[in-house]
Amino acid sequence: MPDLAIRCRGLVKRYPPAVTAVDGLDLEVARGECFGLLGPNGAGKTTTVEILEGLLAPSGGEVEVLGRRWGEDAAGLRERIGLTLQETHLYEKLTARELVQLFRALYRRGRDVDEVLRMVSLEEKASSWYERLSGGQKQRLAVAVALVGDPELLFLDEPTTGLDPQSRRQLWDVVTELKRRGKTVLLTTHYMDEAERLCDRVAIVDHGKVIALGTPRALVAAHVGQEIVEFQLDGAADGDEAAFAALPAVQAVRRVAGGWQLVTDQVHLAIPALLGSLTARGQAAVALSTHRATLEDVFVTLTGRRLRD
């Protein structure tokens, strides 16, 4: 039996009368793995994570965290996990250091308070009241508070949303360092580059279900080609899908908001062919661009929608 940090089967969460936030979700996360949950707003990521954290009771399904169930040994499990909520407020009138100290004291074992503050670059703000920290600093403090119990398993719900590029990169370093120390990380994110960079595997969640699972590279290879050519047609002209699909080296054609996407593995053949075909019909392409296929393209392929609208 593989050594799993998280295992859940057929997870369901209903909010009567009408909402099914999580709809039969299966997940296995190995120890030492960094796992990403991706999905649009309202997909059920936060709900799933909070069930795994033992903060919400599921309406159905099984959950095992670090080999235990929440009903068996909640207190023991809490010693071994750390987490950030999607939205964190801490005591407004305590300083950053006082807050980390307080949370440190709640765990039997943990890390040094100043070391944790240093990891999220808040040494200089250690004596500032929480209410006087900027939004990004508050978020980093939430991560510090999640780390101070030295968890084996860390849950981060959108840890980098709203951070500046430098702080994001810093947080990536924190996660990389945890991975190096053999810790397990489960994070949710809307940033594809983040998932591709940090996560060993990702699950794409939509309407409360996992619709794709694998390493970022494998998902891209399986669901989209190598390169994407994107363009719009000038004026009111309408494109001919069959004609695009017949172009050399084009593997798939998709209509996306306001334009077209061609999936190809040979851009240098596809683009001249496309332009030639358009000129022959008296049409012109505007906003022509190409990019390497990403998880975002996987998402668009799978759902016909964009991740962030």
């Binding site: 190995a30 793995e33 074992r109 943990g110 053999g182 595997r201």
Partner: peptide, 19 residues
């Protein structure tokens, strides 16, 4: 994924736990 989980974590030993 199972293999990587089975191998001990690389890198320096974790900082000693506080008593």
């Amino acid at each position: 994924m199972t293999e990587r989980a089975a191998t001990p974590p690389p890198g320096p030993a974790p900082a000693p736990d506080r008593a």
